Simulated assay, not measured.
Amino acid sequence: MKRIAVEQPYEDVAAALQAKGYETKMFNTDEDVKGYDIGVVRAINEGNTHEFNFPVVSMRGMSLEDAVEAVDQKARLME
């Protein structure tokens, strides 16, 4: 089972991912997140890509369904 770190305030994304069988944890922007397989964040900018040691999905411009599909795609690539 893939572990997904989901940035606040995307509880709806976390719930949708849990319904698909993922383990999720909510985190705050300034929180140090380690040990997860994939992250869902508000936005990715050049300055903060080094903060994560796993692939991330940016919510910028994405619907709930888009975000879940993006996580599914990254999870499949990791298998």
Rank of each mutant, 00 (worst) to 15 (best):
Met1Asp: 01
Met1Gln: 06
Met1His: 07
Met1Thr: 13
Lys2Asp: 03
Ile4Asp: 02
Ile4Ala: 05
Ala5Asn: 06
Ala5Gly: 15
Gln8Ser: 10
Tyr10Asn: 06
Glu11Lys: 11
Asp12Trp: 08
Asp12Phe: 12
Val13Gln: 06
Val13Gly: 07
Val13Asn: 08
Ala15Pro: 01
Ala15Lys: 13
Ala16Leu: 05
Gln18Asp: 14
Gln18Val: 10
Gln18Leu: 03
Gln18Ala: 11
Ala19Ile: 03
Ala19Arg: 14
Ala19Glu: 13
Ala19His: 07
Lys20Phe: 04
Gly21Asn: 06
Tyr22Gly: 09
Tyr22Phe: 15
Lys25Thr: 10
Lys25Ser: 15
Lys25Ala: 13
Lys25Leu: 05
Phe27Ser: 05
Thr29Gln: 00
Asp32Pro: 00
Gly35Thr: 09
Gly35Met: 03
Tyr36Ala: 06
Tyr36Thr: 05
Asp37Thr: 09
Asp37Cys: 06
Arg42Asp: 08
Arg42His: 07
Ala43Thr: 15
Ala43Ile: 11
Ile44Phe: 10
Ile44Cys: 03
Glu46Trp: 07
Asn48Ala: 04
Thr49Tyr: 10
Thr49Ala: 04
Asn53Thr: 09
Phe54Ile: 10
Pro55Thr: 04
Val56Gln: 06
Val56Thr: 15
Met59Glu: 07
Met59Lys: 10
Arg60Lys: 14
Gly61Ser: 07
Met62Ile: 02
Met62Phe: 07
Met62Arg: 15
Leu64Glu: 07
Asp66Ser: 12
Ala67Met: 08
Ala70Cys: 11
Val71Ile: 12
Val71Lys: 05
Asp72Tyr: 04
Gln73Arg: 15
Gln73Asp: 13
Lys74Gln: 14
Lys74Pro: 02
Lys74Met: 15
Arg76Ile: 08
